[in-house]
């Protein structure tokens, strides 16, 4: 009977141990799963962050590029205006001027150019006219002499 009892206790112990082991195993597995899940989540978050960062960078880059283009354009217009040499714009200090303003300046410039050309032509016309008339007047006494021949 004792042996039976012993056996039974042993069995109970064994059973208990088995159950304990089982419980520990489950717990461990659970822990591993949780850990894994956490790792995945963390990894995903990290990836997302990186992606966000990339998007942000791209956007920033684009913006920078756009700014550069604008600047370049502004500079180009300004240089064009400067090339005409009537009004001077500091190419390195265009912060307070946007392209539209510059374009307006350019239109003004063209109008001015046209006006200047017009003024130039008018004064040239006068010069040509007066020179020709002066030659002809100076020629009069020579012609009078020629008429007597």
């Amino acid at each position: 009977a004792e042996s039976k009892e012993v056996l039974s206790r042993f069995n109970i112990l064994e059973e208990r141990q088995r159950k304990l082991d089982e419980a520990r195993r489950i717990k461990e597995e659970e822990e591993i799963r949780l850990r894994q899940e956490k790792a995945i989540a963390e990894k995903r978050a990290e990836q997302e962050r990186i992606e966000q960062e990339a998007i942000r960078r791209r956007k920033e880059k684009l913006l920078r590029e756009q700014e550069a283009i604008k600047e370049k354009e502004k500079k180009k217009i300004a240089e064009e205006i400067n090339a005409k040499g009537i009004i001077k714009i500091d190419v390195d200090k265009l912060e307070d001027l946007d392209a539209d303003k510059l374009r307006l300046m350019q239109v003004e410039q063209l109008t001015k150019d046209k006006k200047d050309l017009e003024t130039k032509l008018r004064s040239l016309a006068k010069k040509m006219d007066h020179t020709e008339r002066a030659y002809r007047r100076y020629e009069l006494p020579l012609l009078a002499k020629d008429a007597e021949l």
Binding site: E132, R133, Y135, R136, R137, E139, L140, L143, A144, D146, A147
Partner: peptide
Amino acid sequence: YLKSWLQDYNG
């Protein structure tokens, strides 16, 4: 005088 028109005072 065949060149009289050149003698226009106002040229």
